[in-house]
Design a binder for these strands. Structure first.
Length: 227
DNA sequence: CCCTGATTCGC
DNA sequence: GCGAATCAGG
């Protein structure tokens, strides 16, 4: 496949939106993860915090290549790389879901249902929703399972390039990028989330036990692209 | 081993 | 410019 403008646009959008290279490659189709990464770098996009690592420290040791080319092709002394690893603003972290940690030093009493963080959001995945008014009736310490972004999540964080996305509107993608009818949800977001209430329910799901994963949750797209 | 991104280097 | 091979790391 070749890198058409459209494909590059999709790559950029998804890369910047936090999609993993694998996801991007899968979405684009016809390219490998490596191809996506390579292209991303060539495009000048670079190092995003890897979803899997918090602190990415890479020391490229001058690796001796697999002894196959004794020929010294190019003596490329690499100049000291600028240490500037400007940490990009971390995207909205996990919502302030109730943490099981008894973070309530104010009361020595075992009654810990006193000072829990107020949660104002919807909890499709099972996490709490609490308005300022409702104080703490039934706040089960029941820690919602770790929230994980659903598959589509990344592919959407587009800027306003394609549409008039803003922090106020739901960024849930409808359709596939590049397709004529591709658009975003666009309704008012669930406060603190990039999506509307409805799509938050899709984007954030309770992490199920290993064994009990449901493979076919509703994909945001029409489903896997047919190739 | 799985995954991730980063880098290299032949093409 | 492209991307497979490879590396480094969680």
């Amino acid at each position: 496949m070749s890198w058409t403008d459209e494909r590059i646009a999709t790559l950029k959008k998804m890369w910047e939106g936090g999609s993993t290279a694998s996801q991007i490659a899968d979405e684009l189709g016809g390219v490998s993860r490596n191809a996506v990464i390579g292209k991303a770098h060539r495009l000048g996009l670079k190092s995003r915090p890897s979803p899997v690592k918090a602190a990415e420290k890479k020391k490229v040791v001058p690796k001796p290549k697999p002894a196959s080319k004794p020929v010294a092709k190019k003596v490329a002394p690499r100049p000291a790389p600028a240490p500037a690893t400007a940490a990009p603003a971390a995207p909205a972290a996990a919502p302030p879901a109730a943490r099981p940690d008894s973070n309530n030093p104010s009361q020595p009493m075992p009654n810990r249902s006193t000072d829990l963080p107020k949660i104002v959001s919807v909890g499709p995945g099972g996490f709490l929703r609490q308005g300022p008014g409702d104080q703490q009736p039934p706040i089960p310490p029941a820690p919602p399972r770790r929230l994980v972004p659903a598959k589509p999540d990344p592919s959407i964080a587009d800027k306003t390039s394609l549409l008039d996305l803003s922090d106020k509107v739901c960024r849930w993608p409808m359709g596939h990028p590049g397709e004529p009818d591709f658009h975003f949800c666009g309704v008012a977001v669930n406060p603190g989330f990039p999506y509307c209430v409805e799509h938050c329910g899709r984007a954030y799901q309770a992490q199920l036990p290993r064994g009990a994963r449901r493979p076919p949750p509703p994909l945001p797209f029409g489903g896997p692209r047919v190739r």
